[in-house]
Design a protein around this nucleic acid. Sequence first.
DNA 1: AGCCGAAACTAGCGCGCTCCAGTCACGCGG
DNA 2: CCGCGTGACTGGAGCGCGCTAGTTTCGGCT
Lengths: 349, 349
Amino acid sequence: MNPRKPRSQSDRAPAPRSRKPTMADVAAKVGVSRALVSLVFRGQPGASPQTRERVFAAAAELGYRPDMAARLLARGRSKVLGVLFTARNPYHVDLVEAIYPAAEELGYDLVLSAAVPTRDEHKAIEALIGHRSEALLLCGPTIPDADVTAIARRIPTVVVGRHLPGAPLDVVTSYDRPGARSVIDYLVGLGHRDIVHVSGGSRPGAPERRRAYRDAMRSHGLADRIRVIAGNHTEEAGSEAARAMLAEGRPLPTAVFASNDQCAIGLLDVFTRAGVKVPEQVSIVGYDDSHIAGLSHIDLTTVRQDVPRLAHLAVRAADEQLRGAREAGAYLKLESKLLVRGTSGPVLA
Amino acid sequence: MNPRKPRSQSDRAPAPRSRKPTMADVAAKVGVSRALVSLVFRGQPGASPQTRERVFAAAAELGYRPDMAARLLARGRSKVLGVLFTARNPYHVDLVEAIYPAAEELGYDLVLSAAVPTRDEHKAIEALIGHRSEALLLCGPTIPDADVTAIARRIPTVVVGRHLPGAPLDVVTSYDRPGARSVIDYLVGLGHRDIVHVSGGSRPGAPERRRAYRDAMRSHGLADRIRVIAGNHTEEAGSEAARAMLAEGRPLPTAVFASNDQCAIGLLDVFTRAGVKVPEQVSIVGYDDSHIAGLSHIDLTTVRQDVPRLAHLAVRAADEQLRGAREAGAYLKLESKLLVRGTSGPVLA
DNA sequence: AGCCGAAACTAGCGCGCTCCAGTCACGCGG
DNA sequence: CCGCGTGACTGGAGCGCGCTAGTTTCGGCT
């Protein structure tokens, strides 16, 4: 068995459903040159209104669609942004949803590539580059700093939601420290003192949130109550943390601050199933305000990041890099703000 | 100033991002023809092992990546499959994750396009076609039958997880009827009689599951206990249904069969928060076995669809259509099987 | 020696499109 | 009458690659 198959006839043109019409077909039908059709389709001046009309009519009749690949190839600029995201992360999904309109506004098209368990971020990024993305938007990438830097040297890159100072790329993110701090301030204001933090390890944003938690606790004179449980940005990590707390036998904290919403939801589920009342017995606060946090049955208190604006800035940063408007290296940070919902409340005596 | 610089032959710019290296650059560096480099990169026979080695070395040094757009253009076949999915649907995410390896196996590349609130499926599909997808894989599309049919006439199409008989496309899905039926059989076997179904409206698979529920109830002599609550394939719909049941004042059913996992989770959350014990007071069963169903804190009884196989068949169907191996119109159905987890149990006297 | 065929490699066209440098007709002032 | 500007349109050279039809080299066989 030869592992590589020789190209056979069947590997060539697919059974033509009817050959895809090209610009030349449209041009021929109207009786003009291809160049004119091209002009019309790009909406550029240089064609009379009547001709435009006829071109569009002929195109519609033939079912012609401009071929992106050829267009990309011919044009210096491809106007395509590659977006890397983690399919399982609802916050990333929110980001992607917000990036679409932002990109459209500036005339960019999007190509998505998902990082999934069987397909790591490196591969996903290669695919994006291969598909002729002009620039990359990386949503909370988890590969090492050095790798991100190496990629950024090859292609304009914008990292969203991860702190990565000093690399030749733009960073768009929220101020994690004040966001996390406001959570602690809020909880302390409600009378909480035993506030546990379930951390997200080295996940994007997690170190900052952890540090802000510690700082805030100290500044409230609660240094001795600091407790960080190592976790992750997943439901599974949250539920494990909750089970661990329940299994300890000692009293539960009155509040838990999770490093992101998924983790918070894991906590929430395990606690409520164990009969622990939220927020009466334990307040739970997440981070990100991903769309699931807002669902009525979750109703999670969390920290909202301004996702549409984040997306907008990210696309604009990419555009600026591409236009050569400035060097890469911008560090854009947005305010984020506490969003009080139903999973948090005062300490009940 | 003209941004378009003429290409100078001797452009060996160490300035990192000056210009993307092309195959010609690699060829020049190695001292062979472009054609040979092309052979090497396609893994085709016709190059000596030493040459291969040198080509790869030079490519790595230059940071060369084959340009998909050009490759697509030059090759009759683009070998790209366009995948439409709903970013917020975890089951779709599972599917996408499974499609990646399946596509790779047959030598296809993937382009994803997400249907999101601000960007409907039509637009997403146009984008896929524009990016030169040879065929479309539509994960549970929600646009009208006629629209899907119209698209399928333009481009080979495979629909996953939606019943759509008689259209010029392939369908890959699971047997929803037996799957749903096994749920009812199982619940009845545990002693349940008051089994409510929260339906998914006209969402892919939902009508079949609803019908199977009704049929199964009747065949168990429970025709008078049939109760369908109109819903959707979202958490929100599940939670609404749960709230509605709680608000009614009359006794809860002993079991609820939701049309998909997300809906089931909505139910689950509202019930547990209201202090209703699952499964002691109410058993809850979902459908799809999306990855969230398996999370330890959810531990949802559900119906597993064989996602890897579904993905595999879908890709193969697309491949077959493209190769002209057969006409479109295949209807592939897989077995699905009940997966008993922690949210279901016997009726307690 | 002479022939042959496979292995290794090359030349060059063409994929569908964009873009630049024209060409053509037409009107107008000198 | 010519020159000249302007709007409408055309020709053709690429973009980076794949692929067919070669050419050259070389070892083995009669």
